[in-house]
Write a protein that binds this DNA or RNA. Sequence first.
RNA 1: GGGCGCGUAGCUCAGUUGGUUCAGAGCGUCCGGUUUACACCCGGAAGGUCACAGGUUCGAGUCCUGUCGCGCCCACCA
Length: 903
Amino acid sequence: MAEPLSPQYEPGAIEGPLFREWEERGYFRADPARVAAGRKPYVIVIPPPNVTAVLHMGHGLNNTLQDVLTRWQRMRGREALYLPGTDHAGIATQNVVERMLAAEGTSRHEIGRDAFVERVWSFVDETGSTILEQLKAIGCSCDWSRTRFTLEPALSHAVRVVFVRLYEKGLVYRGNYIINWCPRCMTALSDEEAEGRETNGHLWHLRYPMADAPGDTTLPKLPDGRPYITVATTRPETMLGDTAVAVHPSDERYASLIGASVDLPLTGRRIPIIADEYVDPEFGSGAVKVTPAHDPNDFEMAGRAGIDGLDVMAPDATMNENSPAAFRGLDRFEARKQVVAAFEEQGLLERIEDYVHTVPHCYRCGTVVEPRQSEQWFVKMKPLAEPALAASRDGRVRFTPERHRKVYENWLENIRDWCISRQLWWGHRIPVWYCQADGCNEVIASTEDPGPCPKCGGGDLVQDPDVLDTWFSSWLWPFSTLGWPDETDDLRAFYPTNTLVTAPEILFFWVARMIMAGIEFMGEVPFSDVYLTGTVRDLQHRKMSKSLGNGIDPLEVVELFGADALRYTVTSGQGLGTDLYMDPSNLEETFAPGRNFANKIWNVGRFALLNMGDEAVASPAELRDTLELADRWILSRLEAAAENVTKQLEAFRFHEAADAAYHFFWGDLADWYVELIKPRLREDADPASRAAARATLATALDGALRLLHPIMPFITEALWRRLPFEGRSGESLIIAEWPAYGEWRNEDAEAQLSALIELIGTVRTLRSEYNVPVASAVEIHLTNVAGGLARALAVEARALERLARVSAVRGQTNGGAGAHAVLRGGTELFVPLADLIDLDRERDRLGKELDRLESQLQATYTRLASESFTGRAPAEVVQREREKAENFKDQRDRLSAKLAALG
RNA sequence: GGGCGCGUAGCUCAGUUGGUUCAGAGCGUCCGGUUUACACCCGGAAGGUCACAGGUUCGAGUCCUGUCGCGCCCACCA
């Protein structure tokens, strides 16, 4: 035996060295040649964390589950590839570096574009691998030699190829539309990047005087006699850009006004009243102000009516030169106040209403998004969405939990075009060039930087200044990381990937778009299964976040309790479709399940290694004839556990898988098997019995460690290597086979041993209930002993003595006071306790037991008496019910006799 | 406004096709423990009319309807 093991598991000492060794030995590397040679691949691409990110519990959960699946499939003989990498995260990263510049008293505009981009690169080079190193600390078995970055040259090339192909297909286009604009980030956003947040706002009702009302109008009038029309708005400052007022075409109140005009207050402009189906006559006054340059609906109405918009806001959301002089240069919210004040002053403010509504905010900086008309690049989504929709409908992509499928499909069914240009400096520059020569309007989309304009023969070409949405590179991740557009061995071997594990928040941002891109560019869905994890929350059910300060640092957990404890805790906490709740203020309690379990594993290993000795063990199959009941039992349990864990993992039921492995290890193996065989492991035990026990213990532990390895790779590997199997030294559990037995199921052994377990448990309970001192052994009387128990007792009689402090087992009861119980199968147990117990208490206990039996018996009788039951239930169910009744009746009769005997 | 989900022991949750692994686990609580590893342990216990009300069924945490409470996602009623 090697160095002795410490009584308490110390993860810090083993995790680091083991991980380095795994890496050095190349266990995490995937080889396309082996796939070409016929091995089945199993591939998970990591959802690339932002390059600026530091590990949080969301990653802790996500990446643990990915690694559990990867390790499991690797053990099953698949060529497993867990492909790591990071995302350049356009806005997020740019913001981080901009803040750094601000702290230095400068800005990106001051240092210029080239210097800024250089600065971001040096920041990324310096800190970009932080999160990947952190993933190693939690044990992720990624193929680190394949680490990718969304902004590396190869992936940039893929982005350009995709852009150009879509452009040539007419699926990428440039247009002047209303987009979501973040005035702080100073860029356009996609619809998904504008998060609606419920906001307490107001609805301002404004009066617009008529310029030319027909004489018979029923409109209300201002004090000066002018009739007016009322409109309601949540953004009064936008009225400066109104170019019409709209009413519903069939709204009788306004029918005569269509085509008339109003004098737009504060502006001196006169604008028309138009009719449009979009207007809801029920809402407000039934008249809507129309601001085409600052509202998507208004933009469309104006388009239908052939009316121009007027852009009254600058990119930073201050009022621009199209606004009246009094408002020019004001921030939009200040302008709002002053517009309202001006209306009030002129007697045109009808009323202000409190109004709760959803307001879009920038998902990166939280600023209120301003809808703004501008020239941007878009992807036409419908042609891409349809095949992606079909893929989920026909099952080529499965979602777990299933309910997410509907959300996905609903989004695709209502898809809108994707605004992909960003007015940022950090990202993939749009591969489009414009000719500057007079009269030449050539626009070139190209994967390579072009020379002079080919059309006019020499005009200077200037590249579009904008960059692409970060997600425009992320959506290619499952194939761009494998070498696309080149036809690489990796691509052939590892695409399509198998399972995508990610957070539900990025279902639209990323998952749906990857499916679209995979189908469009590879002709095949990028993965067959999407597993969406739960969200990690605190005990108040709030999402863990930096700003709330309620996060848990996974590295701190690793430091305190080890990676295995972290991994077990999150895996066993991940029920299907459920969130995880953890207490950031009590890591001790939160991670106790994992820490305690790791310690238990350690100590079972320690006990086994100490008691098995170094001599190589045989396989239980070779010793089949000398295996004892306990041996046959634990091997049967092991086989059942292996099947169960496999089944649960196949269905992504992580909690169930962890639970099954846990209960086999702690319940069956540690609590019972180890206790049962302790005497047989002694040096002076019968050699054949000892050999059988050693072989079985080694095999059971071997199997348990294999089952737990995907979840707890470090501790299992550390112990597994020490098991005294012939020729094992130097092998690694990483590449060991996943257990599948198929020869050890043994119903007899299970029935016999569970009867013995029940007996021991019952004696323990009675001893405890009657406060029998630990020191005093009891004798027990058994009558009507069920067959299974009889056989178990014949071979494991000593277990009773050792595990329940039973000094003797007798047959016939000789009366007297004592505790009585009826076991399964009808075995009666009597424990004489004449000098030790309170008789009244026992009578009470027996009485209650009798009542319970009586009511169960009556319920069973009632059911059996029911024609509908005996007539309609399957025969075996009825039969079972009859047996149950017989059983209850026997038990009741014996119990009442017993009670009567007690007096 | 539309869609989805959840309400089971003090807490966090399992319970996969309605009928012996159906009332469970872990943590917490209480009682008792120097037993060939483990007090991060061992043995035992208490605690739930499975949100509420109806319904379907021979039989319902398990299916249906409604009510109450909670949460999430989507949405261009200003």
